[in-house]
Simulated scan of single mutants.
Amino acid sequence: MKTQTPITRIAFGSCNDQAAPQPLWAPIRAAEPDRWIWMGDNVYADTLNMTALDSIYA
Rank of each mutant, 00 (worst) to 15 (best):
M1C: 04
M1L: 04
K2D: 08
T3F: 05
T3R: 07
Q4I: 14
Q4F: 14
Q4L: 15
T5A: 14
T5R: 12
P6F: 00
P6A: 11
I7K: 13
I7P: 07
T8I: 03
T8V: 05
T8Q: 12
T8D: 11
T8F: 00
R9M: 01
R9Q: 07
R9S: 11
R9H: 13
I10N: 08
I10M: 06
A11T: 02
A11G: 08
A11W: 07
A11M: 09
F12P: 06
G13S: 14
G13Q: 15
G13A: 15
G13L: 15
S14E: 03
C15A: 11
C15R: 03
C15L: 05
C15K: 03
N16P: 01
N16L: 09
N16A: 08
D17C: 07
Q18L: 04
Q18P: 01
Q18E: 09
A19E: 15
P21E: 11
Q22W: 06
Q22T: 07
Q22F: 06
P23L: 05
P23G: 06
P23Y: 02
P23M: 11
L24I: 07
W25T: 05
W25F: 11
A26G: 12
A26L: 05
A26P: 10
A26N: 15
P27F: 02
I28Y: 00
I28A: 04
R29N: 12
R29S: 02
R29A: 15
R29D: 09
A30T: 03
A31C: 01
E32N: 09
E32C: 04
E32H: 12
E32Y: 02
P33K: 08
P33S: 11
D34V: 00
D34L: 01
R35S: 09
R35C: 09
R35W: 12
W36S: 03
W36E: 03
W36I: 12
I37M: 02
I37R: 08
I37H: 03
W38E: 02
W38F: 07
W38H: 10
W38I: 04
W38G: 07
G40K: 01
D41F: 01
D41Y: 05
D41G: 00
D41T: 01
D41I: 00
N42H: 13
N42Y: 13
N42R: 10
Y44F: 10
Y44H: 08
Y44V: 08
A45L: 02
A45C: 10
T47W: 01
T47R: 02
T47I: 01
T47A: 04
L48I: 02
L48A: 14
L48R: 14
L48Q: 11
N49F: 01
N49Q: 14
N49K: 11
M50P: 04
M50T: 10
T51Y: 12
T51F: 13
T51H: 13
A52V: 06
A52Y: 04
A52F: 03
A52T: 10
A52L: 14
L53W: 00
L53N: 10
D54G: 09
D54P: 02
S55N: 11
S55D: 14
S55H: 13
S55C: 06
S55Y: 04
I56D: 05
I56H: 02
I56Q: 08
Y57H: 15
Y57W: 09
Y57P: 02
A58Q: 11
